[in-house]
Design a protein around this nucleic acid. Structure first.
Lengths: 336, 336
DNA sequence: AACAGTAATTGCAACAGTTACGCGAACTAG
DNA sequence: CTAGTTCGCGTAACTGTTGCAATTACTGTT
């Protein structure tokens, strides 16, 4: 077991200095701090209360807003269940808000008293994940994928089912199928776009760029997609909207415009919660068990911390495709 | 400042025994434990890491499930913002799961290393709030109301706007207005029922029990309400559904049954998030700023902890009423 | 270059809480 | 009455943190 004493001995400084270095006290010199942190990371130092080792993990956001979406909430719900097995607790952290500019990620997490972290990130802040992995702090990233074997992640593959979903539309007879995705091109949305393209390739069809929409993932964005699609001269007969808010916004706009779903327009959405049952008509959707992603991430992380083994893991769990009422054959101009 | 030393001295035992009593170690006798806990509570003991006082508050659930609803999520989102001001962090706790049967609430919270707690409770577990208040542990209850001045709470008054909402329907000319609420009669739902009754009283009308529905707060529950309402010989022309899921379920069922909203049936829902914009037609609703409730609770609690003052507070914040597209004059049988 | 003053670093010691181990008392069994 | 067991508690050794003092390094002046 590494303690401030053993680190102090190896670094040739006092335990006071070690404590201060770990807590990012300004009075400790840069050279000393770096030496101490290097040893602490190598020895796998964990902060304690008295002799007791803390059993908290962090749910950390690299972005400014915490828990902004239902996705985040579902994730946290799963995390809370996942830590249960090993008796850990969850603390919500916000890197952008609380991390001081001159402290390392490891220092930050130790200051907050967590032994590991489930990281909720976006495509833009992937470098944060790289940095934390480099420091060696126990971490699992959710919903991003990495090539490096140093970075643990739990990810959902929505490409396969996106392909299946679009193939389903093609088999129903649709030939002009629009696609809508978020403006921010993260792994997930790119996957779904890839599946969309693959399905077309399988049927020997080409993808027309003019019916690939990129809009902000919001109700308004979805409404815009529906408006634009309906205004086209060569109007699509179906849309796959790769985000829950886009999908719901489009469906409601269709109602408002008097566009019958699925008779005049088939809709496939993406659902990372239980939204598909909360719209009319119930939404055919590629679905992600977000709660399970959180569960799996927290479960594995805490198991790793409890056992002391540092074996990395990278897991991709499958999505699932559910057919409900928002899809049908094209041009069925009859009124249901 | 009280420490295990000072408590030990006053109790006439060793610091070891105090530590064990506070951590609910089985080896300490009941009499000694009770003595130590009494002194600790009286002196306002807080656990520390080294000399540093912890700055965590708990978000605790008395129920089994944590973060089951969007209400919980919105609450937590607000709490995370609320603790920001005083630099606290939030840890998610589950009383039913983690609290050992033979430990006090204070012991539990100290074991988890939190200095205060925002309590999410239900009507059935009000006695838990009483118990924690009696122990004197810093706490704020959200969304329940109490007579006792010992219990701090932040609550939302949805009675006034419920009355206003139903009065709005009455002024539109509706005379047979149904009401739907959860089977579990908590403060909030009773408030809304009260507002519903007051509005009727203002107009000199009586409330008919056969159009007061009590169903599980779910989409299916809402669908059931719509079905039952439409099947009545003396059919209501409007429904106030005092729960988001009930409201959404009813609206979607109306679509499925071919019931036009608002022409054949006006709907007023209750919204504790942003659901009113996510349905078609956009939903006239009594709304609760759930995130603000969480913010206010956490903000006040942390301010109290940081300042050391133990002044109790009980605050009721107002709801707001928004008129959207789901309400109109009754029997407007035109198909617009 | 020498010196004084100031800021930056560091360590000592006293503090915060927890726990392995052992001791003694009380209780039980033969 | 003795041996073994259990219970309750304390000593001492461990965990990390911090106020204060001491030391070191740097900076400006003569």
């Amino acid at each position: 077991m590494s303690s401030v004493r053993t680190i102090a001995e190896e670094a040739g400084v006092s335990i006071t200095t070690v404590s201060r270095a770990l807590n990012n006290d300004v009075t400790v010199s840069r050279k000393t701090r770096e030496l101490v942190l290097a040893i602490a990371n190598r020895k796998g130092y964990v902060a304690r209360q008295g002799r007791r080792i803390t059993t908290n993990i962090g749910f950390a956001f690299t972005l400014g807003q915490t828990l902004a979406t239902v996705f985040d909430s579902a994730l946290l719900e799963g995390i809370c269940r996942g830590v249960d097995e090993c008796g850990f607790d969850v603390t919500v952290l916000n890197l952008q808000r609380d991390k001081k500019p001159n402290e390392t990620y490891t220092q930050f997490f130790m200051r907050k008293g967590v032994r590991g972290v489930v990281l909720r990130t976006t495509h833009e802040s992937r470098r944060v994940c790289d940095a934390i992995a480099e420091e060696g702090f126990p971490m699992v990233v959710v919903s991003e994928r990495f090539e490096s074997e140093n970075i643990n992640y739990i990810d959902c593959d929505s490409k396969t089912d996106s392909r299946r979903a679009v193939e389903y539309l093609l088999e129903l007879g649709h030939r002009r199928i629009a696609f809508a995705m978020n403006t921010v091109p993260d792994c997930d949305h790119m996957d779904r776009f890839e599946g969309y393209k693959q399905a077309h390739a399988t049927f020997g069809l080409s993808v027309s760029e003019e019916i690939v929409f990129r809009h902000q993932a919001s109700l308004v964005g979805g409404a815009t997609v529906m408006k634009l699609a309906m205004a086209m001269s060569d109007r699509p007969t179906a849309i796959y909207l790769a985000d829950p808010l886009l999908a719901v916004g489009a469906i409601n706009k269709a109602h408002q415009m008097g566009v019958a779903i699925p008779d005049q327009m088939s809709i496939i959405g993406f659902d990372d919660a239980e939204v598909r049952y909360a719209v009319y008509p119930t939404m055919t959707a590629v679905c992600q068990n977000t709660s399970y992603i959180g569960f799996e991430a927290a479960s594995r992380l805490t198991l790793m911390l409890a056992s002391g083994e540092r074996a990395g893991f990278q897991k991709t769990i499958p999505s699932f495709f559910e057919v409900h009422q928002s899809t049908g054959a094209p041009n069925a101009t009859s009124g249901s």
